[in-house]
Design a binder for these strands. Structure first.
Lengths: 134, 134
DNA sequence: CTCTGTGCAAAGCGTTTGCAAACGA
DNA sequence: TCGTTTGCAAACGCTTTGCACAGAG
């Protein structure tokens, strides 16, 4: 398990306190949008600029260290890149849950049937989560 | 098969020429983004305003007559609402292809395993399409 | 020491809003 | 005729850019 410091350096990105904080917040919260991230990081860096957030989110996304998840009917959220998975998005509480995806079989079929070489999948399942349906 | 004129009226929306043109363009092109739609519709309505496009796209989307598809790494496209399907998005030519989705079994499993009531699914599969891989 | 990153302010761009005139039903 | 829609211009909000200074390596 590498530290974010080491990971950043592997990507030739300087390990600034701001970047480390962003990575920590994103990874502990799981999924976070720009505003939430800004509010959270301001607790540590009182004078951080939104521009800094944007610049870093962009460079880290381009380097595939972070992933943008475009949600229907709400703002994009970001997560640290991990193995392929789908998202369960609750329309009531807004919570987003990762879901292991076991669709390799289906994707293989698609590759064959449509002669389509799959590089990536975005799967968002919207509905009502366990606690909200009580 | 209802005409768009009739469909609009069913939703209590006036069947203006602009709206009919939008529906025709969206349905014949399959998937279209705002700019493409604007360029296309200007051929018929030289003085149409972008604001009109936005207002109509929004009201028709809210009425579930149109659907917004948020694509990774590019602008949203719109389509006329039809039965559930997934999208194959080519990273080279940008073409978007509909794909019948046979994942009801999987979705049932999700409902059970995660106690999640599914209302909607967004599935975008990115990669390289048949003609671009030649 | 050098080059990258930060913070600020301004610019940019896509989208929305307000309003008067035009139009559909 | 009445309420909705259009087109225009202005406003808005989110994101990006330019630049001087600070900081990482």
């Amino acid at each position: 398990m590498n530290t974010y410091m080491e990971i950043l350096r592997q990507y030739d990105l300087k390990a600034t306190p701001q970047r480390l904080a962003i990575l920590n917040i994103v990874s502990t919260s799981g999924h976070v949008n720009i505003d939430e991230l800004y509010e959270e990081i301001k607790k540590q860096f009182h004078s951080i600029s939104l521009a800094t957030i944007y610049k870093n989110i962009n460079t880290m996304t381009e380097n595939k260290l972070l992933l943008e998840v475009k949600l229907p009917n709400s703002k994009s959220v970001y997560e640290v890149v991990k193995s392929r998975h789908a998202h369960l998005s609750c329309e009531i509480c807004g919570d987003i849950q990762d879901m292991s995806i076991d669709a390799e079989k289906i994707f293989k079929e698609i590759s064959n049937e449509y002669s389509f070489k799959i590089n990536n999948t975005d799967v968002i399942i919207s509905g009502i989560c366990k606690s909200c349906s009580k």
